[in-house]
Amino acid sequence: MEYNKENEELINNDIQDTSNDKVLNKKDLNKMVWRSLLLQSSFNYERMQGGGWTYSIIPGLKKIHKNKKDLSNALQDHMQFFNTHPFLITFIQGVILAMEENKEKRETIRGIKVALMGPLGGIGDALFWLTLLPITGGIAASLSSEGNVAGPLLFLIAFNIVHFGLRFFLMHYGYGMGTKAISMLKEGTKKVSRAASIVGLTVVGALVASYINLRLDWTIQAGEIPVDIQGEVIDAIMPGLLPLLYTVFCYWLLKKGKSPLALIGMTIVVGLAGSLLGIM
């Protein structure tokens, strides 16, 4: 019960200190670029980068939210599930910090954050893991294979010029863009937060279908015929059915007042049981 009460507060919170002066300077933003290097420092399967994301913007949040209740609300909000490409995170930092600074509604900030993280994850994979890394690695490998020490040096220099260049550029670009977007959307914060929630929920729906890996590896003999439960039964009813059901079940348990820790325990039991029975 306790748990849900806290969250009701988080949903309906009003910002107590609404002064929206510009408090962040270039130095603050650069500091948070360095912090972004620890985005995955508390990576886990439940929230993924949530903890590291919060860590990365703490100096900004502290400067923006002088009111302790506001700071606490912001921190709790940012501790939620977060996952994106680690090189593009500074763009989201910039946008979100501009919004926090302007004391936008929590609902709007949340929606925009979720809406940005999903697509940037996919774009980052394509740009860096599938393009930058193979190119720099491939060129370096051809040098190294002749015993040339320039291979690894060139690799590190080329890779990190792009890497760190983007990190710093995207932070300031994101912050500038966030500031501009806010001034454009001044009218009707309610409508803006509704729009942000629509995009956010659409992306969350997509994430539920793509991020949760819950499939049965279970074949039963129906007479002579082997039936693949996942492929021939569950997927035929609806692909992604199990991830959806499990998420809804967890949601329902949270509403019932169960703690997330209990849900983690339950999930570990499910995983171990599925593994022992050989059906997962």
């Binding site: 849900n4 969250n7 988080l10 949903i11 886990n44 399967y45 439940e46 929230r47 993924m48 949530g50 909000d77 939620q80 599930f81 609902e107 949340r110 929606g111 979720v114 929630s197 956010g200 929920l201 969350v204 994430l207 539920v208 991020y211 949760i212 890996n213 819950l214 991830p243 499990y246 998420t247 809804v248 967890c250 949601y251 348990l253 949270l254 509403k255 997330p260 849900l263 983690i264 999930t267 570990i268 499910v270 995983g271 171990l272 599925g274 593994s275 997962m280």
Partner: peptide, 18 residues
């Protein structure tokens, strides 16, 4: 296997708010 399922908890918590 449990790790693969766990994002469901993260999403459930997110939905609890959103």
């Amino acid at each position: 296997v449990a790790g693969g399922i766990m994002p469901a908890i993260g999403f459930a918590m997110l939905l609890n708010i959103m």
